[in-house]
Each structure stands twice: as C-alpha cells, then as structure tokens.
C-alpha cells in the first residue's frame, strides 16, 4: 500500500464525512416527518431545494450577504414545507397512505419543474463561505467551506435536539410521534404539531440545500433528484424514524460514496452505494437504529 493511497483514503474519508452532514440533515428531515406522521414525504428534497432558490433570489436581486442567503434558504424551505403539508398531507384521508405518498410525488415533480422553469435550467452562482480557505494537515487538505458546512449542520442538529428534548413543542412532537391518540386526549393539537414538524424539517432541508450549493458554489435544479435519493438511502441505512440513525447514515453514505469513488471509480460508485442499500434492506430492514416498537 503506497503512501499516496493512504493519503487519498484519509482525504476521501474526511471529505465524505464532512459532506455527509448535508445528507444527514436531509435524512433527519425525512425521518422527522415519518416519525411524527408515519408517512413518507417524497417532495422533501425538492422542497428543500426550492427553499434554496428563495435564498438565491435574494442573492441575485439584492446581492444579499451569505448568512442572509442561507437564512432565507432555510426559512423559505420551511414555508414551502408547510405548503407541501397542506397540499399533500393535511387533507388526504388517513386510511389511504398511498394518497399522500403519490401526492408528494406529484409535488416533487411540480417543484422540480417550477425550479427548472424559473431558472431556465441554468446553473447560478451561490455564495460560499471560506471557499478559498484550506486547513493543511501535512498532505491532507481540509476544505474551509466544508468545515463551515459541517459546523452549520452540527449546529442545526444541536438546535433540533434542543427543540425536541427541551421545549414544550418538542414534548408535543414526541408525544404525537409515540401515541397520537393519547397525545390528542391530552389536549395536544396533532394537526398543529404535524404542520410545525413540516416547517422544522423544511428548515433543516433548506439548510442542507444551502450548504450543498455553498460547497459547490453553484445551484442547479438537477441537484433535487440527488437530494431525494440520498435522503432516502440515509433513512433506510440509519433506520426510518431514528434521528441518530439519520445522522450516522448520512455520514456513512457520504464516506462510502467517496471511498467507493476512490477504489472503483465514478462509474461504479453508485452501484456500490446501492448495493449497501440493498444489503441493509435485506439483512437489516430496520436500519442501524430502527426500532421494532409500534404504536396505536
């Protein structure tokens, strides 16, 4: 094993783990919604990206500074998340889970088309932070912007945990997630909790979208499918409904992608990531942190 291979391996691992935090945020969004409503929102990745375009709009129109752009992306995605909830989940019959699933597929296609239409499919520059900075540890280079992305994602996750475990809203969310009927009997408005969950998940998705665009330096609608697919892989590997699972899953997928890229090249990279997904579905369908517990 030569020196350069070891350097490449460590570098790929580091890049993958840092970039994997964005996958983790997307995974958390999927898992949060599933955890509370037991429904999959397939429009989530597209909604996250649509929110990122709200931030981009501010950047292109008013030359807004990066932090304002990131914040607008997160808030925009939160609001679009709310629209997705009301359009696809709020009024679809509980007894027909396929209705909301297919409605979210429709919304995914609608949002993708809308973004493509508005942007004419063209890539647009998206502001980055620390894009020129590099932390050099011998032959290992850690990108400053990826460290920033990592930091923002960690802060977003910490805020989420605080929200879920230290606030009345979090208590209500966990109650609805565990026993929706019992929560309602205790006076918790489950529709309101569901709506807020979509907003919170949207904010996380918008942050992930903004950080993905900031890491590349440009935004294009073609990212939407990637965000959706990666998010789903992350939740399957981490365990649908588990937030720690989504975090570990995100980091694992980010690292695996880069390692497979190094070892097998770009044409085989996704084959191995999908194989990983297949192995989990077959051997551990609940994912790493999936719970066997059911609810009423």
């Amino acid at each position: 094993m030569d020196y350069f291979f070891i350097i490449d391996f460590v570098q790929s691992l580091a890049d993958g783990l840092l970039f994997g935090t964005t996958y983790a945020l997307i995974g958390i969004g999927f898992t949060l919604i599933f955890g509370v409503m037991r429904k999959l929102n397939l429009a989530y990745g597209a909604a996250a990206l649509a929110g990122t375009y709200v931030g981009l709009g501010l950047f292109l129109t008013f030359n807004a500074p990066p932090f304002v752009v990131f914040l607008a992306s997160a808030i925009g995605a939160g609001l679009i998340g709310l629209v997705v909830y009301y359009c696809c989940f709020r009024f679809t019959p509980e007894a027909h889970p396929m209705a909301s699933l297919l409605a979210s597929v429709g919304m995914l296609l609608f949002l993708e088309e809308m973004m493509t239409h508005v942007s004419h499919g063209m890539p647009h520059p998206y502001p980055s932070v620390l894009s020129g900075a590099t932390l050099e540890l011998g032959d290992i280079w850690i990108r400053g912007d990826l460290l920033f992305v990592f930091g923002i994602c960690v802060v977003a996750m910490a805020l989420l945990f605080w929200l879920l475990y230290r606030t009345p809203l979090g208590l209500a969310t966990r109650a609805v997630s565990q026993q929706p009927r019992a929560a309602q009997l205790c006076g918790i408005d489950s529709a309101r909790v569901n709506a807020l969950t979509f907003v919170i998940a949207g904010v996380l998705g918008g942050t992930a979208g903004a950080m993905t665009a900031a890491a590349v330096g440009i935004l294009s609608p073609i990212i939407a499918t990637g965000l959706t697919v990666k998010g789903l892989i992350v939740v399957v590997i981490g365990g649908l409904g588990s937030i720690p699972g989504a975090i570990i899953g995100g980091l694992l997928v980010g690292a695996a992608e880069n390692i497979f890229l190094l070892l097998r090249g770009v044409t085989e990279r996704d084959i191995y990531v999908m194989l990983l997904l297949f192995l989990f579905l077959t051997l551990r369908p609940g994912g790493l942190f999936g719970s066997a517990a059911t609810r009423d």
């Binding site: 890049d15 990212i223 499918t225 880069n258």
Partner: peptide, 19 residues
C-alpha cells in the same frame, strides 16, 4: 478524471489532477 452530470463533489478528481 470522471464525474457524473449531477455530482456535487469533485475533490477526489481534482486531487489526481493536482498530482
């Protein structure tokens, strides 16, 4: 160096180029 149409991370590919 090879990459795909919707890739967002090019650090591996650029590293080979740099060397």
């Amino acid at each position: 160096a090879q990459w795909l149409l919707n890739d967002t991370n090019f650090s591996n590919q650029a590293r080979g180029m740099r060397r």
